[in-house]
Write a protein that binds this DNA or RNA. Structure first.
Lengths: 337, 337
DNA sequence: GTGAAAGCGCTAACAG
DNA sequence: CTGTTAGCGCTTTCAC
């Protein structure tokens, strides 16, 4: 591996001169600059970023932690983050927590010891608090993505879970449904709590009584949920519509519904948060509240870099990205009983 | 940021002792070990990986370069890579080339200067050769993923493109189709060439004459392709089936088919390589040759780490992962004319 | 314009 | 079992 000294020797100058050429700092005569550059090329010199980082105390490395690399919401987000990072001259370290606070913890440790300049963090849930505290204790800037964690002060990029849930619920109500089940994420995740709130608001607004037994909770990544969905539909007056708090929950629910002979949307309407695919798809089936996943990542990185470079305001910023309802086939008007 | 020296001072010992405690090397009395550990915890000490890397000449960082972070094939692959990396104690730097050799080049430069221990590389195509050469010139181990690049000697994890294509084509033939279009990727990508070969072999085997005008090429990421698909179907004797060389091509084709009033599978059967979604899906529609994307990533990292740690054989290894046909609705028996 | 010296945080090699 | 010295590849600071 060729170093700055090898170049300096061949170019008959000091390491400092070479360093200045590399970084375009200070005054250098055109002649020496050219000589040094030629030799660098000739010797295939590539600067050692780590050595540099060690002295300048900055790595130009950012970390992106997502909870499910398999979910198109997060891959689209990752794509946005990747683009933004590239544009701003940062590299991205990727990790996937699988919604596990423990995996998160492991990763936080490696992140800290890697001395990344900042972390873009989609937390597993409220239990991520200690992990986040660990980061803040080391003064590593954080931007929280998608989910808020009570007790953490930092910049945020969120979706409008409450409004979205309200809108989606009202959409179902508009289709004639009054018995609407909510298959929610864990209540230890802020988005799940807000989606419940939005759901309840929509019911109230339409004078529909809230039925406890129409609510169930499951893991956001969960695809297998026969028991849970079974419970929801066992009642005398089973729901005619189901609102799933995210895409994977909806998928699991549909599968489970099909297994018990219920057709979607004929027997049960289904709608959810987030698109099911990253790109477009042949013939989208699911009625969804679509969130601008790409922007979550892109803006998140922008905010993070602003903060790192001291261009951010003192106070914490909270960006709420709007979502949009796409009415499709999975949610249909209620059939006359 | 607290350093080894801060610990050493408080613990009343040398930096070396602290270092030994951290790395669990050499002999240390239980008493000093405990004292040092307590102080490390108390001061929230986190080792500085870069400083360490600088001296041990190893970063424990791997780079994963994929061509389309939006494609479920690659995200699933990334998940496999991520899991393997974690299990083996490596971190993963992620990048997305968007099938662009230029983006690839940029990334290669940062990868080299980051001194990653190895690169897991899904090349954009044959033109990636100079980028790969750059890496090998720096003696950075590479494992090539999914696509081969003529002129590059390294470990490989590939799918069985020829066999898969042959199998898929024969499946279509078995359904009664004889006029089968091939919507292929760019011929500068090894998988596209092999898929063409497999397609041709299947035709030969079934005494179907090869029709030049049934072949078209497009970008693997392409979703918009009206002109291309139009050309394929303008003939007097339009194809009754279409074999798309990857999932996104199939999606684009279907959309374009629908726009010209052709229904799938009623008017045209469609089948392709790779699943359309990372996870399971409600009611899979597309007939596909599914590749074990997760294994591409997992095994790729394993091979890479083996190579890095000198556990790999001298000769280059070439792993061919088998694929599997899933017959679904998008490809149907040919209707009597 | 250019260079010499010192040090970023850590560990290898050797000494005791 | 523990410490000393030197140096990984680079940049900061100050001197010329």
């Amino acid at each position: 591996m060729v170093t700055i000294y090898d170049i300096a020797e061949k170019a008959n100058c000091s390491a400092m001169t070479v360093s200045r050429v590399i970084n375009n700092t200070g005054r250098i005569s055109d002649k020496t600059r050219k000589r040094v550059q030629d030799i660098m090329r000739e010797m295939n010199y590539v600067p050692n970023t780590m050595a540099r980082s060690l002295v300048v105390q900055e790595t130009r490395l950012l970390s992106l932690l997502i909870t499910d690399i398999t979910n198109p919401f997060y891959t689209t987000l990752a794509r946005g983050a990747e683009d933004a990072a590239r544009h701003l001259g940062y590299r991205l370290l990727l990790a996937n927590s699988d919604e596990s606070v423990d995996k998160e913890k492991d990763y936080i440790d490696t992140v800290i010891s890697t001395r990344v300049d900042g972390v873009l963090f989609a937390p597993a849930g409220d239990q991520s608090l200690p992990n986040l505290k660990k980061l803040t204790k080391q003064k590593i800037p954080i931007v929280l993505l998608d989910r808020e964690v009570p007790g953490v002060e930092c910049d945020l990029v969120l979706g409008d879970s409450k409004e979205g849930a309200k809108q989606l619920t009202e959409h179902l109500i508009g289709l004639g449904h009054r018995r609407i089940a909510l298959l929610n994420g864990s209540s230890s995740v802020s988005t799940a709590r807000l989606r419940l709130t939005g759901y309840i608001e929509a019911l109230k607004l339409n004078n529909i009584t809230f039925t406890e037994s129409y609510i169930a909770e499951a893991d956001y990544r969960k695809a297998e949920m026969d028991g849970i969905v079974g419970g929801l539909f066992q009642s005398e007056e089973p729901p005619t519509a189901l609102f799933a708090a995210n895409n994977f929950l909806a998928l699991g629910a549909i599968r489970s519904l099909q297994e018990r002979g219920l057709r979607v949307p004929d027997d049960v309407s289904v709608a959810c948060f987030d698109e099911l695919e990253a790109g477009f798809v042949v013939d989208p089936f699911m009625t969804v509240i679509a969130q601008p996943a790409y922007d979550f990542g892109y803006m998140g990185i922008q905010m993070l870099v602003d903060r790192i470079q001291g261009k951010a305001p003192e106070s914490w910023r909270r960006i709420i990205l709007p979502s949009r309802l796409h009415s499709r086939k999975s949610a249909a008007p209620l059939q006359g009983t």
